Amino acid sequence: MTDAASFSDPHNAFCHDVSVRLDGRPGGPLDGLTFGAKDLFHVKGVRTGGGNFDWRDSHPPAEETAWAIETLVAAGATMIGKTITDEISRGIFGESAFYGTPTNPRAPGRIPGGSSSGSAAAVAGGTVPFAIGTDTAGSVRVPSSFCGLYGIRTTHGRVPVAGMLPQAPSFDTVGWMADDAEVFARVSAVLLESSIAAARPTRIFVAEDALAVAEPATAAAVEAALIKAFGDGTAIERVRLSPTGLADWSSHQAMLQGREAWTTFGEWIDGTNPRFSFEVADNFLRGIKASPEELAVARETREQVRERVHTLLADGSLIALPTTPFPAPPAGQKRSTMWGLRTGIIALTAVSGMAGTPQVTMPFAAVDGLPVGLSLIGAPGTDERLVGAALDAARRGARV
């Protein structure tokens, strides 16, 4: 182990109150690569901070190292530090009340997105070629979109979450991000324990209701990026995902996620009375308030979402949508303004969250020079195909 402050961190991406370095095993498929790990992943003998000093100080050092970290180190990658996260992964903007907000290297003066904010800033700023994070309601996909990176939310249950601080277990997934498609594919092969082959999809459904959630300029940029990346040789059709609207789907995810998060952290909150930012505290309060009847409806809705989405994807088709409804918003805005922005973001990220499907976001679109992601969703277990589609498009020059 070494001091995390011993390397340059110009974008405030790393937790400098924790010292950790795990050298990769020589000769592996990731030999020579370095990475950062969101401070929700345990490293044996080190306190997992979870983005909140009160959590860090009230828990002992970890007794195990997370499966994802051990697997990457065994494959030759060297972990150089823990990266900043929104508190207990309960934010979506990447703003940290405890560590300070990581900067967005691709959109100066704008937020990085969260909750895997430090991981995204570290990769986009070139400190490391890849980083790992968690994705419950968009925590890898959103910062990847805002920072112009390749990122993946894996099929729920596909990658072991052992040694990872949970939030809402029926939504929690391991994810990762990279600036280079080839590196993204190499890391994906290791963590998916599978081979990755570049391949163009045969059919893609464009989600019209997702485009409608996005700002017009973003919707136009993402559609143009889709045609550039996959228009030659892939059948592209338009479809509406939800009969009731994506905001309805996302409201039910928020209810289920909020209750699960309270189940995970409620006893600690009651006993510790920890400090929280406004957004995180509000998220927990909404989780407490959900009634049994409301939760029953939300669970029924999730089953309906899964049936709808899985049916569309059953023959190997993919769904395309904007990863976020707009590029990274300016930093330092009012809380009421940011809360309104959250609604549109979660409306898009809840599709995969409710369906339990994998989603890859690709840095193929931009609005006024600011990155915004194009996403592909596949059937459960088709993570490799999504990475392969991103790799194929990148090799053909799809990146902006």
Rank of each mutant, 00 (worst) to 15 (best):
A261L: 11
N283L: 07
V360Q: 02
A261P: 13
G133E: 00
S375L: 04
T324M: 08
A328F: 02
A347P: 01
I227F: 03
R106F: 01
A235H: 01
V305S: 00
S242I: 09
E182I: 09
H310F: 03
K82I: 08
K38W: 00
A75L: 08
E294W: 03
E193T: 08
S117H: 02
F205I: 07
A13N: 03
H16Q: 05
F364E: 06
A350D: 12
R399Y: 06
T301Q: 11
A298N: 09
P380H: 01
T218F: 09
T83L: 07
R47G: 12
E300G: 12
S277A: 15
M338Y: 08
F130R: 02
S117E: 04
I346V: 14
V123S: 07
E64V: 14
P380E: 03
A254R: 15
K44P: 06
D86S: 08
D135E: 14
D57P: 10
E260N: 05
H252R: 15
D282Y: 12
V360G: 03
G381M: 04
R299M: 13
S194G: 00
G381V: 05
R153T: 05
I346K: 06
V309C: 06
A66S: 15
P274Y: 11
G373M: 02
G271N: 15
H42G: 12
P371V: 08
T2C: 02
T78E: 03
A225Y: 06
L341P: 02
A298M: 07
A254Y: 11
P166M: 11
E64Q: 14
G381Q: 07
G151S: 04
P10G: 08
P10L: 12
R186V: 04
F93C: 03
R47V: 14
L22D: 07
P129F: 07
S188A: 14
L348G: 01
